[in-house]
Design a protein around this nucleic acid. Structure first.
Lengths: 208, 208
DNA sequence: CTTTGTAGGACGTCCTACGTCCTACGATGG
DNA sequence: CCATCGTAGGACGTAGGACGTCCTACAAAG
């Protein structure tokens, strides 16, 4: 990491080869590779077999295994959902306050329409819906985190075995968010998003 | 990871030795150690020299290097601050709505008092202040994330060189949050927290 | 100009040996 | 009988060398 920051290398830049690094850092190949693996696990470097080592994008994807591992239990999953709610309510509120550009609104409506159809496409539309809202916030980190949290949540949901939501209902929940967004009432928006998460939470709750 | 989840091992449980793992997984020691290093980087396992390998706590500390690496630039730092604001506004809002227990209130006031003194202790009190609010939310993940984000932010702040805030002003900002909390007005609370972050953002803004 | 073959470099894995650290247990002395 | 110390064993840490696999780039053939 020090080497990258010192030389001010941008993502994608090639790093010295393992042979050179062992010479520079006065260590042997084993520990060096272990260090590179650790950095790789954090997305800080990217290793391409037979080609070389490069500065990684450091996207939140690196945190996915961590999140998935952490969110194995139902209670931890509830916490994860809670954090998502926190972030998305905040982001959606902002969007409501700053006003929603027309093209964004159109795309949101398109997602809602797709959601009603159910199946694999609906799930993607659901993800896209939340992604659009985060993109509008103009915060790369927030967008990245929400994306990963979404991914970790659906992965864990499948693992734990949570009942699926009704496509029509899913679409309606999101439609209400869109409607509230158009009205620009940020506290009303918060309510619709909260209700959306309430529904998800209800499915997650341990079956009686 | 599969081994841990399959055997349902709790944090702190011992893992098989490297020798046994190489036998179980049909691999040699080098790649095995690289895998363990990657898991260690994510906090999923904990390796103690000369003793053994154990299931790790998987706390958010694993994200600290990642966050620090990512938040090197001023704009990325602003994004980080923004996410903190998002989370803390949400958490504080909830606390306001659910009502603040008296002992929590006392501790918050204690922190504010310490902040006015300045120095190292003030910084710790600042951290503790935010931690208390997150603890009250009863969400381990959120608390963990906010803690790490705080840590990453102050680390980066020192790195980038952001002017320090005035101790008296710092204390006053936090005191206003406490006052708003007592009143239980969640939208008022949001304003005070936002203003607190506005102050931090002001210091972060590129000097003219 | 396109396709194919090849040579070189770089990462991936394996093996062996030795160093360092920690724990547990037994010996020693009070 | 108890507290302290030393030691043996096990487990992780590092070193070095050798070979396999993969990728890229370049040259040769069509």
């Amino acid at each position: 990491m020090a080497l990258i920051t010192d030389r001010d290398l941008a993502p994608g830049s090639p790093l010295p080869t393992e042979a050179q690094l062992t010479a520079d850092l006065r260590t042997s190949r084993g520990p060096l590779r272990e260090a590179l693996k650790a950095l790789q696990a954090l997305g800080i470097v990217e290793v391409r077999h037979g080609y070389g080592t490069f500065v990684g994008p450091a996207t939140a994807d690196a945190m996915l295994p961590w999140l998935s591992f952490r969110a194995r239990s139902r209670s931890a999953l509830a916490d994860l959902l809670d954090v998502r709610e926190l972030l998305e309510i905040g982001l959606t509120r902002r969007l409501a306050r700053s006003g929603v550009p027309a093209p964004v609104l159109d795309e949101l409506r398109g997602c809602v329409a797709t959601m009603g159809l159910g199946g694999q496409r609906a799930a993607r539309a659901d993800q896209r819906f939340h992604e659009i809202i985060c993109e509008a916030a103009g915060n790369e980190l927030a967008k990245d985190l929400v994306r990963i949290f979404w991914q970790a949540y659906v992965d864990a949901e499948q693992e734990v075995g949570v009942p699926r939501s009704n496509p029509a209902e899913l679409a309606e929940r999101h439609d209400r968010i869109v409607v509230a967004l158009v009205q620009g009432d940020d506290s009303g928006v918060a309510d619709t998003v909260r209700r959306h998460f309430d529904e998800v939470r209800g499915r997650l709750a341990p079956e009686r």
